[in-house]
Nucleic acid binder design. Structure first.
Length: 633
RNA sequence: GGUUGUGUAGCUCAACUGGAUAGAGCAUCUGACUACGAAUCAGAAGGUUUAAGGUUCGACUCCUUACACGACCA
């Protein structure tokens, strides 16, 4: 059973393996623009390479030098690990570090000091260099893409709900991930299409329809005062309830359990209905349209409320026929085969997989059938060089099969397919199970986090002067900020625990902490502006930095590397970590040095500029997560 | 049974892909609001990285084997 009531991956299309499905290689098509820190790093490597040449007469290319960020407990900002050089240079690690450090200090003006600890050469970079890095950062136009040489045309498919029940917590992880990954890829300059493949056909929706026919009495979302997706869900639950009663009754009459499940009248009726639907039965199709229409209205409201969007909708009902054509094509090409009962299979044993059913004996399609059609349509429409599928890890196997099947068919877009496989969301009480009523409804959860944000904000009492509308917007921003950050800060591939109490926390490693930092910066900037200090002052007089200023600049400078890596591995968690690190570095800076209270005008202007740049960085990086940041809170 | 993922502080998560004394947050304890927002900051305590082997200058990371939990395939 796929996509049954017990699975909560989120992608309601509920489907599966991804170690083999890799991001296309990052081959720069054109020379990449280097950003200030990268320039600094490169020139340091070159200088080190030259130093090795001069001091030891050995040739070690700059690219091979393992230069890394210095750990916080040591002086310096860049560290060369000298262990790997000992063989080539015939000296001990400390000796090498000492000699190279001395040479650089004498010949490389950017290096202002060094220290050697065992096999580590820590280089201290002149403050003027960091000021230059900062200047480079603030000169960047807002929204300028990070050039990575990665994919140019991308489709990100996410959400992909079943139309028989409303969205739940698992879908939220899916939706936030999909939206965020799409935004991150956009930030690398890719043209990204957000796609939603709606699973609008199949036995699941027939169950809702059937229950509605039996028990609905003409109810509508308007008459019942229930959101359309919840109404469909209500009838799905009713179906399950009555169906189980029938099964139990049959079992009591002595029918074997597995037979009872298949022979229960409601199940037979649902299957009849599915066949009628495929045959185009007018009454069935009309009911189907009506109920799906209700569901879409409900989904739209939820999507809007949680701030995700789509550029393109696909409907399984419109792609499965094309999929069937591809199955036929495979048969003709001889890469698929037909069993005696008429069912169509593909043999993937050579690929390390198994035999896989592509079309049932009665000619009806299975999940993978329509996937073949959808992949082709997406390629026709958008010519992608990367096609991301945000689907829970329970579908790993299916996604591997999909790719392998497309490869068998010789489709040029097969290799561009990438499964962004994410782990399930568990509750403190264990797995979400519909039968036990432990499923966390998305709409209700959002209401709760917003209410929690409101309560917390009222308690702090810092929002006087804001209008009702502004307050409503703020609570929503904060509640969703907490929820999104909570779900996105964890590595997607890991199964995660959702603790409702922690998800609305606003201290520590949380969305509101970062939003607060932004609000605080905004406050500083407002006050600075009142005193005539803008964010764009000249930095020429700055020659020395405070430790917290240097640390902050270093954090800010990581942006390009973070976005590049986050796009490569498709992990918003890296961006979340970045935003948190920046906020923390700023708060430390804020606590230790005066900004507008600084007497020295040059320093004051610099610190205001630093604050402004930090605010921008927070806003952009949180934006990549789909989280807004307030001016006040 | 086969394939596969995960296992790190009491709890939730990191660790730049093989580098230094494994880092954050929560919870616990201590300190800081008459300088700009305390939803903050500073500090303390908390670890045999599931276990045992192996590879090497160096292992949370790579390779065996075992254990635990999850997912998928029959």
């Amino acid at each position: 059973m796929q996509g049954g009531p017990g699975s909560f991956g989120g992608g309601g299309r509920c489907r599966g393996r991804s170690a083999l499905l890799r991001f296309p290689p990052l081959v720069p098509q054109r020379p990449l623009r280097l950003y200030p820190v990268q320039q600094l790093e490169q020139s340091l490597k070159s200088a080190l390479s030259a130093a090795i040449q001069h001091v030891f007469g050995a040739d070690v290319p700059a690219a091979q030098l393992p230069l890394q960020a210095t750990r916080k407990d040591f002086a310096g900002q860049f560290t060369l690990v000298t262990f790997p050089l000992t063989k080539a240079l015939g000296k001990g690690p400390e000796q090498i570090g000492q000699a190279l450090g001395e040479y650089l200090l004498a010949h490389e003006p950017r290096v202002s000091g060094f220290n050697v600890v065992k096999g580590f050469l820590n280089l201290e970079i002149a403050d003027s260099e960091w000021v230059r890095v900062f200047e480079g950062l603030r000169q960047r136009p807002a929204g300028a893409p990070v050039a990575t040489g990665g994919p140019q045309r991308v489709v990100v498919e996410y959400s992909s709900p079943n139309t028989n029940k409303p969205l739940h917590l698992g879908h939220l992880r899916n939706n936030f991930l999909g939206y965020s990954v799409a935004e991150i890829l956009k930030a690398t300059g890719a043209e990204v299409t957000k796609a939603n493949l709606v699973n609008d056909r199949g036995i699941h929706i027939c169950k809702s329809m059937l229950a509605y026919q039996h028990y609905g009495q003409g109810e509508t979302p308007q008459s019942a005062g229930i959101k359309g997706d919840h109404l469909a869900g209500k009838y799905y639950v009713l179906f399950e309830k009555h169906y189980r009663e029938q099964v139990r009754q049959l079992e009591n009459e002595g029918v074997a359990p597995d037979v009872a499940k298949k022979k229960a009248p409601l199940m037979l009726e649902a299957q009849d209905m599915l066949r009628a639907w495929e045959a185009g039965d007018e009454a069935v199709v009309s009911l189907w349209k009506k109920m799906n229409g209700w569901v879409y209205e409900g989904f739209d409201a939820t999507y809007q409320n949680i701030g995700v969007d789509f550029d393109k909708f696909y409907y399984e009902s419109q792609t499965y026929l094309l999929g069937k054509e591809r199955v036929e094509e495979g048969l003709q090409k001889g890469v698929f085969f037909k069993k005696d009962d008429g069912s169509v299979w593909v043999d993937l044993k050579e690929e390390g997989l198994d035999e896989k059913l592509l079309l049932r004996a009665d000619g009806t399609s299975v999940y993978i059938t329509q996937d073949l059609g959808t992949a082709e349509l997406k390629f026709e429409h958008f010519g992608y060089d990367l096609s991301v599928y945000v689907i829970a890890d329970e579908q790993n196997y299916h996604m591997q099969v999909l790719r392998a099947v497309l490869q068998k068919l010789g489709k040029p877009y097969a290799d561009a397919i990438h499964h962004l496989s994410y782990g399930m969301v568990d509750l403190p009480s264990g797995k979400m199970k519909s039968r036990e009523g432990t499923v966390v409804d998305a709409d209700e959860l959002v209401r709760e986090v917003v209410a929690a944000a409101e309560a917390a904000t009222l308690e702090k009492g810092k929002t006087e002067g804001l209008s009702e509308d502004e307050l409503t917007r703020l609570y929503h921003m904060l509640g969703l900020g907490a929820l999104k950050y909570y779900l996105l800060k964890v590595d997607p591939k890991k199964r995660m625990l959702f603790n409702p109490e922690e998800s609305v926390k606003l201290e520590g490693d949380t969305g509101p902490f970062i939003q607060y930092s932004h609000a605080r910066i905004s406050s500083i900037l407002r006050k600075a502006a009142e005193r005539g200090v803008g964010p764009d002052g000249q930095l020429t007089g700055i020659t020395e930095l405070q430790g917290t200023e240097r640390d902050l600049i270093q954090e800010l400078a990581r942006y390009d590397a973070v976005v590049t890596e986050a796009a490569r591995v498709q992990s918003p968690a890296l961006v979340a970590q970045f935003a948190y690190d920046v906020a923390r570095a700023y708060n430390r800076f804020f606590a230790e040095v005066p900004i507008i209270a600084e007497a020295d005008e040059i320093k004051r202007a610099f610190r205001v500029a630093l604050s402004a740049q930090t605010g921008r960085a927070l806003k952009t990086s949180m934006g990549l997560l789909g989280i807004e940041v307030p001016e006040r809170m």
